[in-house]
Design a protein around this nucleic acid. Structure first.
Lengths: 169, 169
DNA sequence: CAGGTTATCGAATGATCTTCGGTTCGCTTG
DNA sequence: CAAGCGAACCGAAGATCATTCGATAACCTG
């Protein structure tokens, strides 16, 4: 089962995130690595039914082509003393929307911030944060978000539980 | 499964999830594995400054104690043909809130579902989904969510971009 | 202060990763 | 249609790594 040649893809205009055709082996590799990123190459090769060398080359290609964006340990925020999680909806000033990417970039560098969703609708983005306590949360919302002149308003919702369904492709 | 007090930890009856003290080495290991879950044990040991055998024992203990919940490859949904992402806020019927865990568990098994946030506030939970197209999204909202009698209403917001700040502890 | 427990280390072994040359397959060219 | 070319695959072998083990040190606890 051969992979289609790269030649066919050349003519399209296409953004940087071009979709690359994935065959059954690729999908099996992705599913296995999404479930457990630390499987040995040997086991992975056996499971998807190719030689070890082929499997290694496939994984490297998937990383090179950004199909796999990274491998991460999922650390429980509570173990780090971050017992409180919240989802904060942020609305920006209408004239500040041009700089929205700066805002998001700055946010995602803060240690409390786990994820940022840039959304359509009444709010401009959602920020998923984890803090040690309500004090820290208040400080984040007050000092970091609302102090920014680009921010028109925020709405904070506590998160009781967060289930990551990833790991099952 | 409660996510209780951030306060005094001593008196509690203690679940399996009890907070365990982490030293500097543990934190360094967590930071390294959060950034790259596939570092070799040898490199990891050198970076955090302990022997390989000690490092291996530490990592195993962190996994055993659920400080590390898993190791996952971060796969770009677009590579799988899921070009559309959305955050769907779901409100349940007041008398259905007892079965909320069932609803969430059922949701998180669907292939479109990436994450589920069980929240306080006007909505009961948020569902982060990725679908191939608007058709699939409509089908998910209509056939899966609104068809469930426990669901009182939904509100769908498209996601333009999703930034994962994890990887930097 | 003795006993017991736990964490650490270094070295040896066993397993794995990674590279390499050779082969096949499909597509293009002459 | 055969030769040429490129891409992907495989198996084997050396380099590298993971894992186990016994010994040692540090720490409570009684």
């Amino acid at each position: 089962m051969p992979l289609p040649s790269a030649g066919a893809a050349a003519a399209r205009p296409l953004g940087p995130k071009d979709v690359r055709p994935l065959d059954e082996v690729d999908r099996a590799i992705l599913a296995a690595l999404a479930a457990d990123a630390r499987v040995s190459n040997k086991d992975l090769a056996e499971r998807v039914g190719v030689a070890q060398s082929t499997c290694l080359a496939r994984v490297r290609a998937l990383v090179r082509d950004r199909v796999i964006r990274g491998f991460h340990a999922d650390v429980d925020p509570r173990a780090l003393g971050h017992d409180l999680q919240a989802m904060i909806a942020v609305r920006l000033q209408p004239d500040a929307r041009g700089a929205i990417n700066d805002s998001i970039a700055a946010l995602s560098r803060r240690p409390e911030v786990l994820e940022v969703y840039f959304v359509a609708g009444a709010n401009d983005f959602l920020v998923h944060v984890a803090t040690p306590s309500t004090d820290e949360l208040r400080r984040f919302v007050g000092d970091v978000l609302n102090r920014d002149p680009a921010v028109a308003g925020t709405e904070t919702n506590l998160i009781f539980e967060h289930i990551r369904a990833r790991g099952r492709l």
